[in-house]
Design a protein around this nucleic acid. Structure first.
Length: 842
RNA sequence: GGGCAAUUAGCUCAGUUGGUUAGAGCGUCUCGUUUACACCGAGAAGGUCGUAGGUCCGAAUCCUACAUUGCCCACCA
């Protein structure tokens, strides 16, 4: 039997234990004993981006997943926790590009093929690193099924999905205004755009009527786009502009005559009620242009600079400079009526933080409305359950207002569109194919939005489009753990795709967790140095301590703060557990024979029964914090502080081992390393990981009544203090207690009840004192102080009596009993019973 | 502009369907080195539960406003 070393030292055994787990094959559902008879339980690991290292958010998510995976494995399920990594298209390309630039290498000089070689090298390096780090967290994932979003199989899935959507008429190519990031040199989807409130100006510009009969004033935040104006629009019912319709204005600077059009989409409240229309550089303006057949004049290029069409004097200027120049020119012309301060939501690229240019370009789009309809039903019908459920509302709201999804990107790293073109007789032909359909065809240069492949993740990783046994067995997956901020990016798309391609949900439950924040509630950031490195913490305090600190004190959907002190606290707990085990192993020989003798024996078994039931219930309800907290309290404050002390006087090896065995099993999903280490010192040929979750032993429940006395004993000191406070007794008031507990060991009683309060041997007979019984303990207190206690009690009783009378009245009323819904009547009855019970207690 | 969440001790958070005296950990203070553990033990101090109303015999909990903070969504140029 390997001895437990004197101090808890996690570095000594964590890595070794993980190797043993891996070697045991228990991570794979195929290798579990009786694998075929087990119920499948699947978690798809959200694939981390290969952009870099694991951060605390990953550690957090992995811990939650691992708790549930280990718990279900112990419950006898065929657990598949499928890990992988994500190619993270733009994110990775940007990082690798930056890396190359440091070496003086430019992506374009390198060329597509060579550049992609570099990215693959990066992927090998960081992908491997992420796997190693994931293992350090104790993740019990099935590495034999590890996937990468650009694996051959997953690429096949992507191409198949694309083709089916195209054939079904849901993917189309079209020229539209999209969000163009001038830094990333690609379009991005609406979701990748952040809106930031920025103080700016609203300029009012006078556009003179061509016929010289006056002018119309438009308001704009982007005066430089006026160079591409092709109309001015007003609301059709706007009386202010009744005489203007049909006329034209002469655009200042460019001296182009443009029409005044009317359209109901114009907001009469904004600015002057008249708006300049630039179809090439604004989404609404583009729509207006389509409706009213306006010409489209591009004035800004892909680099965010002014095109020659806008006039030689502005050619080549970046947008902001052009804005100043245009304003100067307008001022010269005296057509600026006024300018106002204006706070306005500027659209930024979420990756590069550069201002988005809405530009017209030819892109690929996915019609999502039909997909969304099914996805909405999946949640509404309860086939998918979101935890916490308030997210369902947000989900519906978003899904119901969903717009077409721009899926093409002008970057190199990613799944290249399986689209081929050739020109025949001056006509362009399009073919969807994973491989080249012939030498006359050329492939589209664009790649897919990274979330397109992620959307297929739950089933592409299981072999789809082939109908593999894994797909049949493990899909739909059971639970998805993910950050609440990617509900739309990822979760919604997975639901849409799974419903569309498989006609089944991708998962039954989605657990949405919050962000891990630092001590001050700020987002952890590596660049600002405010982050806490999970691996560093794991080195210093042990992975188990880190895991506990991530589990406890945190509710689903809620951000939470992590700080080193907290982790240290759970290191202390691991140490406590370690020493509990060491103490028991040092003093008693392991035994399976178990018979409770003393009150303390029965008490700890009864508590164990309760805490087992609680932990089970909490985990099933996804309240991992509640489960962890309950176990923590039990181990430290019941088992260690009380039972171990008591057992020094009346040792009972059977009960000690039974309890230790259960504790180690119960804590294993939370603290897998330390529990496995303790276990292996007793049963070296066995694995705790593969053992069974403790059952609740109903036989122990019957002790509950008996052990109340022990509970009472334990609470005596506290009860005393509370009684003082409640009755208004000052600390100096004489107050003694006479325990009525029939406990045979006076020494134990004294040692457990604390030194500050002494039991008195007899009830004192003195007119100043009153003897009262509170629970199982006699209190002897001065009369004066009791009056306040009595007064409070009277008030409570009176209130309750009045309440009870009220309910009785109601229940006596035939109209209520006959006509009210049954559950309402039941509720009243329940209230009545509760109130009556409380009255008796008083 | 719309929506969601949070507000409880100095700090980080629990507080189950309203129910006796609002809890824990950390920190602070006092005492204690009894061989499982000083990564320990026994105690103490510390809260008008964001504000103002309301419902109720009874509110941290339910309702209404407001305030503060954070997050998400959004083609008012």
């Amino acid at each position: 039997m390997p001895e437990l070393s004197k101090a808890y030292n996690p570095q000594e055994f964590e890595q070794e234990i993980y190797r043993r787990w891996e070697a045991s094959g228990l991570f794979s559902p195929d290798k579990l004993p009786l694998a075929r008879h087990r119920k499948p339980f699947t978690i798809s690991m959200p694939p981390p981006n290969i952009t870099g290292e694991l951060h605390m958010g990953h550690a957090f998510q992995l811990t939650l997943e691992d708790v549930l995976a280990r718990y279900h494995r112990m419950r006898g399920d065929a657990v598949l926790w499928l890990p992988g990594t994500d190619h993270a298209a733009i994110a990775t390309q940007v990082v690798v590009e930056r890396e190359l630039r440091k070496e003086g290498v430019d992506r374009h000089a390198l060329g597509r093929e060579k550049f992609l070689e570099h990215v693959w090298k990066w992927k090998e390096k960081y992908g491997q690193q992420i796997v190693e780090q994931t293992k350090r967290m104790g993740a019990s994932a099935d590495w034999s099924r590890e996937r990468f979003t650009m694996d051959e199989g997953l690429t096949l899935a992507v191409n198949t999905a694309f083709k089916r959507l195209y054939d079904d008429g849901l993917i189309y190519r079209g020229e539209r205004i999209t969000n163009w990031c001038t830094a990333c040199q690609t379009t991005i989807s609406d979701l990748e755009v952040d809106h930031e409130e920025t103080p700016g100006k609203l300029w009012y510009i006078k556009y003179p009527l061509t016929d010289g009969s006056g002018h119309i004033t438009v308001a704009t935040t982007r005066p430089e786009t006026m160079l591409g104006d092709t109309a001015v629009a007003v609301h059709p019912n706007d009386a202010r502009f009744a005489g203007f319709t049909g006329k034209t204005v002469r655009l200042p600077i460019v001296d182009r005559d443009i029409p005044i059009i009317t359209d109901a989409r114009i907001d009469r409240e904004f600015g002057t009620g008249a708006v300049k229309v630039t179809p090439a550089h604004d989404a609404l303006d583009y729509d207006l242009g389509q409706t009213h057949h306006l010409p489209i004049i591009r004035v800004i290029d892909l680099d965010g600079k002014i095109l020659p069409e806008a006039g030689v004097e502005f050619y080549g200027l970046p947008v902001l400079e052009a804005r100043q120049r245009v304003l100067d020119k307008l001022r010269e012309l005296g057509v600026i009526e006024k300018e106002e301060d204006y706070i306005h939501a500027v659209a930024l690229c979420s990756r590069s933080k550069t201002v988005i240019e809405p530009l017209l370009s030819k892109q690929w789009f996915l019609k999502v409305k039909p997909l969304a309809a099914k996805a909405i039903r999946a949640v509404r019908s309860g086939k998918i359950h979101l935890v916490p459920d308030q997210f369902e509302k947000i989900y519906f709201q978003w899904m119901e207002n969903i717009h077409d999804w721009n899926i093409s990107r002008q970057i190199w790293w990613g799944h290249r569109l399986p689209v081929w073109y050739r020109t025949r007789n001056g006509k362009e032909e399009v073919k969807i194919s994973a491989t080249s359909p012939g030498s006359s065809w050329t492939q589209d240069h664009d790649t897919l939005d990274t979330w397109f492949s992620s959307g297929l993740w739950t089933f592409s990783t299981l072999g789809w489009p082939r109908r593999t046994s894994d797909l049949k067995r493990f899909h739909p997956t059971t639970v998805l753990f993910t950050a609440k901020d990617i509900l739309f990016f990822w979760v919604a798309r997975m639901i849409m795709f799974s419903m569309y391609f498989l006609d089944e949900v991708p998962f039954k439950t989605v657990y949405l967790h919050g962000l891990v924040l630092d001590e001050h509630g700020k987002k952890m950031s590596k660049s600002k140095g405010t982050g806490v490195d999970p691996l560093l913490m794991s080195d210093q305090y042990g992975t188990d301590a880190l895991r506990m600190s991530l589990i406890i004190g945190n509710a689903p959907g809620q951000d939470f703060r992590l700080y080193e002190k907290k982790i240290e606290g759970y290191r202390n707990f691991a140490n406590k557990l370690w020493n509990v085990a060491r103490f028991i192993l040092a003093h008693e020989r392991p035994t399976k024979k178990m018979a409770p003798v003393t009150l303390a024996d029965k008490w700890i078994l009864s508590r164990l029964e309760t805490v087992t039931a609680m932990a089970t219930k909490y985990i099933e309800a996804f309240d991992f914090s509640g489960a962890g907290q309950a176990l923590y309290d039990f181990v430290w404050h019941d088992f260690a502080d009380w039972y171990l002390e008591a057992s020094k006087i009346h040792p009972n090896a059977g009960v000690l081992y039974t309890t230790l065995d259960a504790v180690v099993r119960l804590l294993h999903p939370f603290m897998p390393f330390v529990t496995e280490a303790i276990w292996s010192s007793v049963r070296p040929n066995d694995m705790l990981m593969g053992s069974a979750w403790p059952k609740t032993i109903s036989a122990w429940k019957k002790y509950t009544a008996e052990v109340k006395q022990f509970d009472g004993l334990r609470d005596t000191v506290g009860a005393m203090r509370n009684f003082r406070a409640h009755s208004g007794l000052p600390a100096s008031a004489p107050c003694h207690y006479i325990p009525t507990v029939p406990y045979d060991d006076d020494a134990l009683l004294r040692s457990l009840s604390g030194a500050s309060v002494q039991p008195v041997s007899r009830l004192t007979v003195d007119s100043r004192y009153e003897n009262i019984l509170l629970g199982h303990v006699h209190f002897q207190v001065e009369r004066v102080y009791l009056e306040r206690y009595e007064a409070w009690r009277q008030k409570e009783r009176a209130g309750l009596q009045q309440y009870i009378a009220g309910i009785k009245d109601k229940l006596a009323n035939d109209r209520f009993v006959v006509h009210a819904p049954a559950n309402l009547v039941d509720e009243e009855r329940k209230k009545l019973a509760g109130a009556e019970r409380r009255l008796l207690e008083l």
